[in-house]
Amino acid sequence: MSLISTNNLKLVLGGQIVLDGVSIAIERGEIVTIVGPNGSGKSSLLRALIGALKPAGGSITRAEGLRIGYVPQKLQIDATLPLTVQGFLNLPRRQDRAIVTSALNRAGVPDLAKRQMADLSGGQFQRVLLARALLNTPDILILDEATQGLDQPGAAAFYHQIEDVRRDMGCAVVMVSHDLHVVMAASDRVLCLNGHVCCEGTPEIVADAPEYRALFGTGTQGALALYRHEHTHSHDHTHKHEAP
């Protein structure tokens, strides 16, 4: 059974239909990337998956007892709110100290527990958000443009961390991203969205699909060619996947 699936999902935001007729299924352990132009309903789809947005039609089915880790697009913490990383990770439920430490380790920021959220760099902040999503050892990790505001190496390092997390914890990953080449390289499956599902499949299939080309042109072909080249050898993860 799929971890989470939608059947003919329709989403309405502020009176506007943002998504219609979306039927997708996420399987255990896979990395699925959602691409699409601005306003194509990517974030809305994720928000529906976590339950923050009610379907206007169709349905969402979650596996029983499904644990979801969610990393939002951005989080504006008002400067008037004093909060340490540790305090942030203990919301809304107090966590075991060991669990907090292990989540920070997995997210690659073991030493930040006592720091103020307001003092973190963009990359540190996103990793703390990732750590928060890992607290409940999720079956599925949902990331909404989690690298927005990070530079290219920062984004690449972040996605590398995601791959490590997936490998260690075996959770499925669903993410929205604009960093097409980085993301396509890391994905098992790509879902191209524009009000509906335009096309889906492995990165190669989607990149060759006329619907995808119509949306993104052929500009990303070079990056994808590089991807194919890089991944013709065995997939051992001991080498570094740095962004080109």
Partner: peptide, 19 residues
């Protein structure tokens, strides 16, 4: 208190945590 703080930080994050 804890739930109020979560909802203050981010409504979506709160929802994902069952608040």
């Amino acid at each position: 208190w804890q739930a109020l703080l979560s909802a203050t930080l981010s409504p979506d994050l709160a929802t994902a945590s069952g608040v």
